[in-house]
Simulated scan of single mutants.
Amino acid sequence: MSQPLTRPTSPPVVPRLPSTVRLGLSRAAIETKMFFRERDAVIFTFSFPIIMLVLFGSIFADDLEGTGLNVSQVYVAGLIGAAAMTGFQNLGISIAVERDDGTLKRLAGTPLPRTAYFMGKALNTLFISFCQVVILLAIGVMLFDLELPSETSVWATFTWVFVLGVLGSSLLGVAISSLPRSSKSATAVIVMPFVVLQFISGVFIPITRLPSWLVNISSLFPLKWMCQGFRSVFLGDAGATLELAKSYELDRVALLLGAWVIGGLVLCLMTFRWKSRRDH
């Protein structure tokens, strides 16, 4: 008796994974939702630079002779730079916590590429930093007579300084997240370098009043160049006399911030760990 013929079964169709860019955008949306659900983190993140600007801008409100500017306006530009670099602190701490509580270990079991994870964090930081900058600019205009530029080219300078600065500092934050041994030590390990950088990069103390060895150290990190770029946008030609080189050196700013983006990504790929040290 002949056997019935059976049709050959075709291999199961494996669905194609979304592109890295699409995964990164999806991850950015998730990161943003999680951030705004943590109300205490939202309040602290947005209130800290505002409080610092109001305090320093109100205490040090003297005019800078021969420039037509006042110290408060210099603080606005500096604190915009610090707000654009908050990703260094926020990402360094949050990723260390996610690694310690097992969140990253669970993500490692998914097809999510590292690049998409970094992209999601960076885009989320771009959005949060942009919101901070808008608030600081509004306060600068209302309280400290800051004049917003009217030229398109100046706003183009603001855009590339902001984007390169945020991305570079965010990637540096991802990389430094591997330094704390646990989530308990993350805040102490990461906040201190960020505070020191603000004092030596022209945020709270004019760069011309710092000793040369401190300026040399700050020149190795993106914050000094971010602040310099933002001063060029909001202080104009009059503020160039406050710089060490009597110029904003925007070509050098672009070169070094771009180098931090590339170097930061390489550093992330080399040092990033999905698991904590105790899982090895």
Rank of each mutant, 00 (worst) to 15 (best):
Q3D: 12
P12A: 07
P12V: 04
V13L: 09
R16D: 07
P18Y: 04
S19R: 01
G24K: 12
G24T: 11
L25H: 12
E31S: 14
E31C: 12
T32H: 07
M34H: 10
E38R: 02
D40H: 08
D40P: 01
A41C: 01
T45S: 14
F46P: 00
P49S: 07
I50F: 06
I51N: 08
M52C: 14
I59V: 15
F60Y: 14
Q73D: 09
V74H: 03
V74C: 12
G81D: 08
G81R: 05
G87W: 10
Q89T: 15
G92Y: 12
V97P: 01
E98K: 11
P111S: 11
P113Q: 06
M119G: 15
A122R: 04
Q132A: 07
V133D: 00
I139M: 08
F144P: 05
E151M: 02
T152Y: 05
S153Y: 04
A156N: 11
F162W: 09
L167R: 06
G168N: 10
G168A: 13
S170T: 12
S170P: 05
L171E: 07
A175R: 03
R181N: 15
S185C: 14
A186Y: 13
V189T: 15
V191N: 14
I200S: 08
I207F: 03
T208V: 14
L210V: 04
L210M: 03
S212V: 11
V215G: 04
V215P: 00
S218A: 13
P222N: 02
M226W: 08
G229M: 01
D237W: 03
K246D: 09
L250Y: 06
V253N: 05
V253T: 10
L255D: 00
L257D: 06
G258Y: 08
A259N: 00
A259K: 00
